[in-house]
Amino acid sequence: MKLLLEISLYFSQFCVVLAMLLCMLRLLKGPTAQDRVLALDTIWMCAMLFALLLGISFASLVYFEWAMLIALTGFVSSVALAKFLMRGEIIE
């Protein structure tokens, strides 16, 4: 049973990293700026999921706080970039 959990953890880590790579492709080729911001937001989300996976695989609750911080920072950065693209300034 331990083996099953290990295999599934490795598989999901692989899948999340692959998802980040796909987002990186969209970030590099995205035709407009809002595509790039969307891809960056999804990369933040995948990083949060990866922190959760690390927390499960190392059986430590510290990674939960990482995930919380990553989610918070990702939200703030995405909102700031979206506001900047919309108006040309962040705080009006």
């Binding site: 599934s8 999901s12 899948c15 998802a19 999921l49």
Partner: peptide
């Protein structure tokens, strides 16, 4: 516990992959 957690992990990672594939 191992079976349920493994099932949830595989399900979640496949869904994540599908979502980002849609983004691409």
């Amino acid at each position: 516990l191992a079976i349920i957690v493994a099932l949830l992990l595989i399900c979640g990672s496949l869904i994540t992959l599908v979502g980002t594939l849609g983004l691409l």
